[in-house]
Design a protein around this nucleic acid. Structure first.
Lengths: 148, 148
DNA sequence: CGATCATCATCAATGCATTGATGACTGTCA
DNA sequence: TGACAGTCATCAATGCATTGATGATGATCG
């Protein structure tokens, strides 16, 4: 094979993200939410009336994926959607009170996860990690573009 | 909300992993594989005759998820499964020639992605990044355990 | 005014992941 | 020998993600 698994930096990156996802799942589950649902509600909380497509972009998923997710949330009464006054084509999406309550419960625990991550590092280490991750991100973007 | 989004280190981590996943998708797609399928074949290449459950553990997914994935791969003739000689209960899984060919094609391109990631950093930076990621991983594991 | 383009929503097919439950088999220990 | 624990496979329900295709709407430019 092209490269020994132990040399693949991507594996370490992925393991860390897997662990993050698992921790967030544990955090958010008592609120009756999944991680993507939590992410959507989080964005929604500060962007009332956003369109489904814009919400999808903010959450880095396709509009189709977001549509399914929003359907579940509307069915459960956590968000509500209504046609825009002028642009009748777009559905404005808003948190309901129940949605806001679920989000707050979830965010308390999800914040604890982020706090733990924060507390693991010194300020300098955090800056360095962010910088390294940013460089990895753009290197990967370039690599994908080159292969494409 | 508990913590401003800009302070959440987890977001940067997740963005980097998303980019990695996207790049790998581009890499393995011409081989007719998805990223999880590529991962399974990769492990399978060096562990002929492994059980489905063990393969699932190696790939960090549930046995159920792996079972579905293996079904697709066997249907397409990339792997073959046969009952173990003694432990009739377990299905030994092996690459077929077609599976090996698909894996090689995919791994050439996937390796290029890992090479690009490798090339972005100096040796010292790579070590540091790995160390930071390892610390993040264990901090997250502890956080999840504390919440649970 | 009318063609074009961008944005939005939605249908369909496919694949990956989870939890939970069930049944079959092996090996061990009392 | 017979109960028990561990491992394995598999069924079912639910949710998230992709690509691809379709159609509706509003804005822009010739």
């Amino acid at each position: 094979m092209g490269m020994p698994a132990s040399d693949r930096l991507g594996i370490d990156l992925h393991l860390a993200d897997q662990e993050l996802l698992a921790a967030k799942r544990v955090a958010v589950e008592p609120a009756g939410l999944t991680v993507p649902q939590y992410a959507a509600l989080f964005v929604l909380a500060e962007n009332a009336g956003i369109s489904g497509a814009a919400l999808a972009r903010a959450c880095q998923v396709t509009p189709q994926a977001m549509a399914v997710l929003l359907r579940h949330l509307t069915d459960r009464g956590l968000v509500e959607r209504a046609p825009h006054r002028w642009h009748r084509n777009i559905l404005e999406t808003r948190l309901t009170d129940r949605g806001r309550a679920a989000l707050e419960l979830a965010d308390d625990r999800a914040s604890a996860v982020e706090q733990a991550l924060h507390a693991e590092f010194t300020s300098a280490e955090r800056d360095h990690l962010r910088q390294l991750l940013a460089r990895a991100t753009s290197a990967l973007r370039r690599a994908a573009h080159a292969l494409d």
